[in-house]
């Protein structure tokens, strides 16, 4: 089965699993290390360039609690690849178990069109849109911490809350015009 499903497997005890999807494979590794290092709970990090995931690892793969698409804003291919991958996710994932992480946003802010496209995509899928400063180690650690906050909720490790409830607040909304305040 090529479509990834959120509830097709049983979870492992006290373990959260996260899938990082990045076409360029630049940030993935560092972020994965930071995720494992920073968490008190056991975190299972899986890496992929794009979806669908290969069939041969299907058996050994744990239940994925959170799918993170890492988008490099300086590259067009990054966005295209993520966009292509989305259709291999079960709709159940879009109830708070997918988020987009944009890198290099400050280095490509001359190109507002690309950022707009990403924002539109995240807003239409009701997913949170995070930004990360991956040029510095502090930035990577911080990005990992933010992902962990979402991951813990998505994997059911935080009592009394669910990923759907959290995503109600954190999901990206598309303001009418991001460049200018509307009274200007």
């Amino acid at each position: 089965m090529s479509v990834l499903k959120p509830f097709s497997k049983l979870p492992n005890l006290d373990t959260a699993s996260i899938l990082l999807v990045e076409n360029e494979e630049q940030v993935q590794q560092g972020l994965a290390e930071a995720l494992v290092e920073d968490s008190a709970q056991a975190v299972n990090v899986r890496l992929a360039r794009s979806l669908p995931l290969p069939l041969e690892n299907e058996k050994t793969r744990p239940r994925i609690d959170l799918v993170v698409f890492i988008l490099n804003l300086t590259s067009d291919k990054s966005f295209k690849s993520a966009n292509e991958s989305l259709k291999y996710l079960d709709p159940g994932y879009f109830l708070g178990k997918v988020c987009f992480m944009v890198t290099n946003a400050r280095y490509a802010s001359g190109n507002m069109g690309r950022l707009d496209a990403v924002r539109k995509m995240a807003a239409s899928l009701h997913c949170p849109l995070l930004f990360a400063e991956v040029q510095s180690p502090e930035g990577v650690t911080n990005a990992a911490r933010r992902l962990l906050t979402i991951l813990k909720v998505a994997s059911g490790l935080v009592p009394n809350t669910s990923s759907l409830y959290l995503s109600n607040l954190t999901r990206c909304t598309k303001p009418p015009d991001i460049d200018q305040p509307s009274f200007d």
Binding site: A105, L115, F131, G139, N142, I178, D179, Q180
Partner: peptide, 16 residues
């Protein structure tokens, strides 16, 4: 600085 913030918050990573 307000106008700058409207833009910067859009791409802020929350810690810088």
């Amino acid at each position: 600085s307000d106008a700058f913030l409207y833009k910067f918050l859009n791409i802020w990573d929350g810690s810088l």
